[in-house]
Design a binder for these strands. Structure first.
Lengths: 207, 207
DNA sequence: GCGATGACCATACATAGTGTTCAGTCATGA
DNA sequence: TCATGACTGAACACTATGTATGGTCATCGC
């Protein structure tokens, strides 16, 4: 039915990719809100009609970029969320590794993630996407906590899900501030150390 | 020079107040971004020209509302930031009182505060305002921590300012989620307990 | 080769919002 | 009675969004 000239099948339309690439590049230096569709398509070398053929709007394109970025995010946090296959790792070290991987993810995708953090409040689609992501991380963290007798002993009598959600959102905020270059979190070492410190204090205060 | 008909002096122009009141009311149920100047002036019963005479735009009006709301905020946190005049209060109890006062402040001014949290990322003026506020709270918290030998013993070797900033931003985020009705923080008891728990764990882990 | 198909583009359009301008109204105070 | 200053209403230029139209061009079946 379609007139294809390259790969035999399952080839994501090239224009679509070009738009997403250009959009991601622009977001590295520009605000989502300040970007117009005109600028995006100019950078992508694509017509206005094509853009609206592939995406319902700016938001929809951003949503796609976010989905791709956080897809990698799940793997990033895995060292801590899925306790080592064989050797029982020190939870503190695993946690630090997860936090560090999160920092890498955020800095690599700073533009896209900054954009959704600033936009999910005013767009239903983006809100659902982001709250869903946070809920996923929260659930993973809560599960990991509940599997840890030491942590559970400390948290006795408190709402584990709420604590897990707090720590998740603390991460979101600090990573975001780092991506915005707000001190003192623009210093990656400070960011990771501080986040790690609060998580550890909350979960394993015995130290 | 001006033709006044009421109070003798220092009378803030009535139209300006009407705009601010209407704006605050609208923000209780609507998003800042989704509100147009047309709607605001319609609700206020004021002409477009008058609006732009008193405010440079939507953002400037919001900034004014935020300044007024957080003016009260400084007092709200005072029980903890400025240790009691005479009797040495239990820092944990004082902290809880401060957190609870913060919750009251946020719920009273939910619309305005939600608006700035969602907008400071894309407006230089609002950014400066909000980051300044957070810096103020952070400084107060850091000072309070440094005055407390018990807390300082625990935090030995870590960046106190960074920890104070983390806890400040954690508060910002959790209060915001509560104002948005995001579970589990839409439950005020959970909000206050969890925030209190993380602060205490981080600062006074001895229990 | 020939016509159909579908991807793509340029242009134009309707709609909506922003911020400015300007002529005009109306109460007050001199 | 006139001048002043607060305020309005309407129009304007500009920018952005999302849609609709007509046309180009490569490819495919035949």
């Amino acid at each position: 039915m379609s007139a294809r000239r390259d790969e035999p099948a399952a080839n994501a339309p090239e224009l679509r990719e070009r738009v997403l690439d250009a959009f991601r590049d622009l977001l590295r230096e520009r605000t989502f809100e300040s970007l117009s569709v005109a600028e995006i398509i100019a950078a992508a070398g694509v017509s206005r009609a094509s853009f609206y053929f592939y995406f319902a709007g700016k938001q929809a394109a951003l949503a796609e970029l976010v989905r791709r970025a956080v897809g990698a995010g799940h793997q990033a946090a895995q060292p801590w969320t899925e306790p080592g296959t064989a050797a029982p790792v020190d939870p503190r070290a695993a946690l630090r590794a997860g936090i560090d991987a999160g920092a890498t993810l955020w800095l690599d995708n700073a533009g896209v993630l900054r954009a959704i953090v600033e936009s999910w409040g005013s767009d239903p689609q983006l809100r659902e996407l982001w709250l869903g992501q946070m809920a996923t991380f929260t659930a993973a963290a809560a599960e990991r906590i509940q599997a840890d007798p030491e942590a559970m002993r400390r948290l006795a009598g408190t709402d584990v899900t709420a604590v897990a959600a707090s720590l998740t959102w603390l991460g979101e905020r600090l990573y975001y501030l780092a991506a915005c270059g707000v001190p003192p979190f623009d210093d990656r070492a400070v960011l990771v150390d501080t986040l790690h410190h609060v998580w550890i204090s909350t979960l394993y205060p015995g130290g």
